Simulated scan of single mutants.
Amino acid sequence: MKLFIASFLLVVFTSCKPEATLKAKHISNVEIITLLEDSLLNVRALEIDANGFGSFASSNGEIGGISKNGFEEKTSLSFQLKHDTIVPNFRAVAVTNNAGFALGISSPALLYKINKDSLKLVYKENHPKAFYDSIDFWNDLEGIAIGDPTDDCLSIVITRDGGGSWEKLSCDDLPKAKDGEAAFAASDTNIKIVGDNTWVATGGKASRIMHSPDKGRTWTVYDTPIVQGKSTTGIYSIDFYDENNGFAIGGDYTKPNDTIANKIRTTDGGKTWQVVANAEGPGYRSCVQYVPNKQGQELVAVGFKGIDYSSDAGASWTHLSDASFYTIRLLNDSIAYAAGNGRISKLIFR
């Protein structure tokens, strides 16, 4: 236990000077450096702070960190969590300035808080339909986690005390879910926060965007034109560059080469969405992220079919690699970390 807490806190509390952002031209290729490789490793939950320190959690209850010794990354699994005999399937992590959080998917849904001196189970939900997908924080005190409906709305739990306690919102205060509407625990990118604004992407037979302008107190829902209608279709990942410009990607993971209506863009804060790169560009992808400091023009998407890049806000795409990843986080415009089935890697874009 001491080894686990020490390793995780190295990630949460250590700081150093960020690596310099390279003033590069448009990305044309990617170098992939494997940091951790294990045939039993399966990671969809990954977070990187501004200094390049990271945390990850696996489908087998493992927690780990990416730390640095000089310029050399040190990536390791630190601890495997168990709740009684249950090994959590972690698909989401979050890090504040004071603590780290790891969220398991299915019943009992388990949310752990890790701080300087302790590891604590702070939320547990026993329900046959419980399935949590993503977690994020507005600040060090206020955070949100989302999951599939257990009643007639999406499951949303909120903390206002730094993650010490969590309260599930009533369906009376949330938009009603449509038949077959849920969310995908594919890359921990169902939630995007910019300031007080929060966007949540749903998927399945209906795939929509929920928006809150006030840190989860009130909600509006908007339709999208992304492919939907089956349990495997819809939005798998969402990102916003600012309060107006956002992008979502997904498709149907059972038909990963299909490129019809699987990429959508908004310029009005999520109220309306337009299909882009229709019938071209990448097919199903599980994660999309804006490249920092590029005015919302550059995007990187990953999935088990490879890595793709856009320099024109998603209108066209370049396939960079067939390397398989589930999720990615960009440190700056040239360095990212990605995780998937069997490995965690550092990506250098050039």
Results as ranks from 00 to 15, higher is better:
Gly143Glu: 12
Ile144Tyr: 09
Ile144Thr: 07
Ile144Lys: 05
Ile144Leu: 07
Ile144Gln: 06
Ile144Glu: 01
Ala145Phe: 13
Ala145Trp: 09
Ala145Gly: 03
Ala145Thr: 14
Ala145Gln: 08
Ile146Val: 15
Ile146Leu: 07
Ile146Pro: 00
Gly147Phe: 15
Gly147Pro: 01
Gly147Val: 13
Gly147Ser: 09
Gly147Leu: 09
Asp148Phe: 10
Asp148Cys: 08
Asp148Arg: 11
Pro149Gln: 12
Pro149His: 09
Thr150Ala: 11
Thr150Gly: 03
Thr150Gln: 11
Thr150Lys: 13
Thr150Ile: 15
Asp151Glu: 13
Asp151Cys: 04
Asp151Gly: 06
Asp151Gln: 11
Asp151Arg: 11
Asp152Phe: 12
Asp152Thr: 09
Asp152Ser: 11
Asp152Ala: 04
Cys153Ser: 15
Cys153Phe: 15
Leu154Ile: 15
Leu154Asp: 01
Leu154Trp: 05
Leu154Thr: 15
Leu154Val: 14
Ser155Gly: 11
Ser155Tyr: 13
Ser155Gln: 13
Ser155Glu: 09
Ser155Lys: 09
Ser155Asn: 14
Ile156Gln: 14
Ile156Leu: 10
Ile156Gly: 09
Val157Cys: 07
Ile158Tyr: 03
Ile158Leu: 11
Thr159Gly: 05
Thr159Met: 11
Thr159Leu: 09
Thr159Pro: 07
Arg160Ala: 04
Arg160Cys: 02
Arg160Gln: 12
Arg160Tyr: 11
Arg160Thr: 12
Asp161Pro: 00
Asp161Ala: 04
Asp161Tyr: 06
Asp161Thr: 09
Gly162Tyr: 05
Gly162Leu: 10
Gly162Lys: 13
Gly163Tyr: 12
Gly163Leu: 02
Ser165His: 14
Ser165Thr: 15
Ser165Lys: 09
Trp166Cys: 03
Trp166Gly: 03
Glu167Thr: 14
Glu167Phe: 10
Glu167Ala: 08
Lys168Ile: 04
Leu169Thr: 10
Leu169Lys: 15
Ser170Glu: 12
Asp172Arg: 15
Asp172Ser: 14
Asp172Tyr: 11
Asp172Leu: 13
Asp173His: 11
Asp173Phe: 04
Leu174Val: 06
Leu174His: 07
Leu174Lys: 13
Pro175Lys: 12
Pro175Asp: 07
Pro175Ala: 04
Pro175Cys: 04
Lys176Arg: 10
Lys176Gly: 01
Ala177Met: 05
Ala177Gln: 08
Ala177Pro: 02
Lys178Met: 01
Lys178Tyr: 08
Asp179Thr: 06
Asp179Arg: 06
Asp179Asn: 10
Asp179Cys: 00
Asp179Met: 00
Gly180Glu: 10
Gly180Ser: 06
Gly180Pro: 00
Gly180Val: 00
Glu181Lys: 10
Glu181Trp: 08
Glu181His: 07
Glu181Ala: 05
Glu181Asn: 06
Ala182Cys: 02
Ala182Glu: 02
Ala183Ile: 02
Ala183Gln: 02
Ala183Thr: 13
Ala183Pro: 00
Phe184Asn: 08
Phe184Trp: 10
Ala185Val: 04
Ala185Tyr: 04
Ala185Arg: 08
Ala186Val: 08
Ala186Gln: 05
Ser187His: 03
Ser187Arg: 04
Ser187Trp: 01
Asp188Phe: 01
Asp188Tyr: 01
Thr189Cys: 04
Asn190Phe: 00
Ile191Tyr: 01
Lys192Met: 00
Lys192Ile: 01
Lys192Gly: 00
Lys192Ser: 04
Lys192Asn: 06
Ile193Leu: 05
